[in-house]
Amino acid sequence: MTTTSAGPAPTIASPAPPRRRRSGGGAPYLVFLVPGALLLLVVILLPLVMNVGISFTTWTGVGTPEWTGFDNYERLFSDGAFWASFRHNVGLIVAMAILPTLAGLVVAAALFDVVGTRFGPRAAAVLRACVYLPQIVPVAVAGIIWSWMLAPRDGALNRLLEATGLASLAQDWLGDPDLALYSVMGVLVWFQLGYPVVIFVAGLQRVDPALYEAAELDGASWWRRFWHITVPQIRPEIFVVVLTCTIAALKVFGPIYVLTRGGPGGATSVPSYLSYQSFFEKTQVGYGAAIATVLTVLILLLTAGFLRLQNRAEGGERS
């Protein structure tokens, strides 16, 4: 910490690899990592290891956990509710990652390419802000708004359908087991769309306008330009959006808690809600920990896979 030497500080550890020759040695900098490392240890790593440990026990949260090995995992894999919750997660990935990415691409391209150039950047900025607004509403509040919008008797959506003469389409949106998941998916599309739009619009700023002009002179249609210029140019952003949205979809808790509490009859239950229930409602802490562990492994594998894919794609472009 007190080294004031201008040249590289002498390294105590093994000889420095050539990469570090200008960095002045690494060891003195370790001090700066202490607060972060301590917090990481106490708040993240220790609980994570404990959670994995708990998943091999039967425990109500009080007293001593009883070691039961893989019992929780065996139970998990034969538990219909657990598999159903993962199927619901697939629906949420469609609603939070796939649909918003596809729609986001079209909206961002239209904002950038049509509205921004022909109606001015201000019009594009206002429209972008409108689409983004649901993103800044707290998830819990979004859930409150929608559970009331979708209420069966005096909900705004059913009233709107009645007012437009479509009363026959009115539904118990969140109370009908066949419909509830789709209603939740619709809410999540509304909630999520702004994120890809903003990221993609920002990415499009990078694209060389000359590419578009050349394509337009060649008589390429808007769709052709979209597929052959816009999409390839912002591929890094698309990767990031798909990854972060997929992870977010796997972790969804707030909207389920507020909209349906996993109901009706488990029709919208997701793993995160299932583990919450096991922890705090059923006091089957070991089982909840097992669900959380499986979810963690899945998310980490997915992240690693995406990052490899991304590296390979970038490497392929460079060579």
Binding site: S272, A289, A292, L300
Partner: peptide, 11 residues
């Protein structure tokens, strides 16, 4: 990237 579910009970 960890889901908070994996930390919540120990915390």
């Amino acid at each position: 990237t960890l889901p908070q579910e994996a930390l919540v009970y120990p915390i």
